[in-house]
Design a protein around this nucleic acid. Structure first.
Lengths: 286, 286
DNA sequence: TCGGATTACGTGCACCGTAATGATC
DNA sequence: GATCATTACGGTGCACGTAATCCGA
């Protein structure tokens, strides 16, 4: 049986062209390589090298062997990674969502129900989420549109509505609601990790001037320290009942009137995972 | 890097179900297997076994690893054989022919011209010869029909004509020639290794009664000791000028009149081997 | 009590490195 | 002299075996 280390050394020699080069690359001595190549040659039983005076060159047999070696090495190297990935898949539930809010809500529920599992989370647009569900990157995804794919199982997963917070002295502050297009060219504070909401704002607000901030603490400080318009949502209004800018009475909160600002979420999994997550769906749906 | 011996041991364990079984099969001790499995597990970095009290069982990771191991092992084992076969192909010229006579003529010519090559020979019908030429089984073939394939190069390679030797008191002995169909139901001595000639005789002689003999010495003795009809050919008549049954004057030699008994041979190779064998073709064609 | 897995311990071989030699540019 | 392959020699890691222990049918 030809051991891997021999194939590895042959492959390195085939690439480098000299034993010394290969030895350096493999952090081995030249004599070690000489011996290994001799041994390999003996194992296979036919000459693999043309031995010129002080040069060693692969002959046709050697080139062929190197080619086979490459294939075996590649497959051998893959094993550990593939098995680790397989193991990981069986011990982690990967959640993908189109926005952070519903994902943050889901994670503790999943963690509680599947104690021995690791739960990972990512935020992406709907399309890659659906792809990821199919290729196994995600086991659960939260979308903001009803999945049409018949190979998926899904349930409604709450709603979220967009509001805007304006200073009381803002020209639009007296309104009962705001259309996104009315925010044209306006400076608006925006937390950067808000998933699909960002695309929505970019789509609907002409010539947007977003002041992006991806540190949540700093974002809060900026809100307090400025009187810039900022988005919020039904979720925050319910779960964070006394933030400074609500009670200071210097700002008003107005609903966004666009239909797209009123979102329903859907929790989906592959049909063949429906059983696996039945407890989760039960808990969510009633 | 996972060495082959580890995969080999895992694969044996996967097949046997117990370490002791695998140890016996591999001519190793149980402790050696225990250690190797531990080592493999550590290398990959995820559990591969379910350790019951005094039983070791592959878990899902382990089964997957064993599956990968099988693939790598198979490919690794193949290497030596494939390279040896490749080497052999480059150092042997395999000659196939439809009959022994022209092959026996060709072998010394090839041997003389390609000194460092091994020359092998086989006799087969034309169809497998042509197949073998294409798939590399043969580099040179001798046919008894002109090859139609445009991907082949060929030259005429002599002729051979069939005769029959009859006792002088045989009813047909007075004829100037014989048709094969006239040999109906006749007992005829036949050397078995005569290639396509055998098929020809079976085809053309109704209800043939061949007394087959595959030992050449014994065949000669049988000719001398009996007065049975026997085939010969122009080749033997030219190269073996004084065999007993010619000079004893108790037998007559009559030509076979069938058109198929008058054969022209053709030496063919693949077009991409034409250059390689140009010296041979030159010598043959003059 | 036997069969199977594991642990502990000692050993030998196989692979390695260093040093020296040979050979070519 | 520089580079490269090979040979010679001495060292060491590691895979192995033996023996002992544990555990369950």
């Amino acid at each position: 049986m030809i051991e891997i280390y021999l194939l590895e050394q042959l492959e390195a020699f085939a690439r480098c062209g000299t034993l010394s080069g290969a030895a350096e690359e493999l952090h081995l001595s030249q004599p070690a390589l000489t011996r290994s190549m001799k041994k390999l040659e003996e194992l296979i039983g036919v000459p693999l090298f043309e031995r010129q005076k002080n040069k060693l060159v692969l002959n046709e047999n050697g080139k062929l062997t190197a080619e086979y070696a490459r294939r075996v090495l590649e497959q051998d190297r893959e094993i550990a990674g593939l098995v680790r990935a397989f193991d990981r898949r069986n011990h982690t539930i990967s959640i993908g969502g189109c926005a952070p809010v519903p994902v943050q809500q889901l994670v503790p529920q999943v963690t509680a129900l599947y104690e021995d599992m690791t739960v990972s989370q990512e935020v992406h647009p709907d399309a890659p989420l659906l792809d990821g569900l199919q290729d196994g990157t995600f086991q659960l995804v939260i979308l903001h549109e009803e999945p049409a794919d018949k190979a998926l199982y899904w349930v409604p997963y709450g709603e979220e509505k967009l509001y805007i917070v304006l200073p009381k002295d803002h020209p639009l502050a007296g309104r009962e609601g705001i259309w996104l297009k009315e925010l044209e060219s306006m400076n608006i504070l925006l937390f950067s990790q808000i998933g699909f909401w960002y695309e929505l704002c970019v789509d609907k607000i002409p010539n947007p001037h977003f002041l992006l901030q991806n540190d949540f603490e700093a974002f809060g400080e900026l809100i307090k320290a400025s009187n810039l318009p900022v988005f919020t949502s039904s979720y925050f209004m319910e779960h964070d009942p006394t933030p400074d800018f609500y009670t200071e009475n210097t700002r008003v909160i107005l609903p966004i009137l666009d239909q797209e600002a009123d979102v329903r979420y859907y929790l989906a999994c592959r049909l063949d995972d429906k059983k696996r997550f039945s407890a989760l769906f039960k808990r969510i749906s009633g």
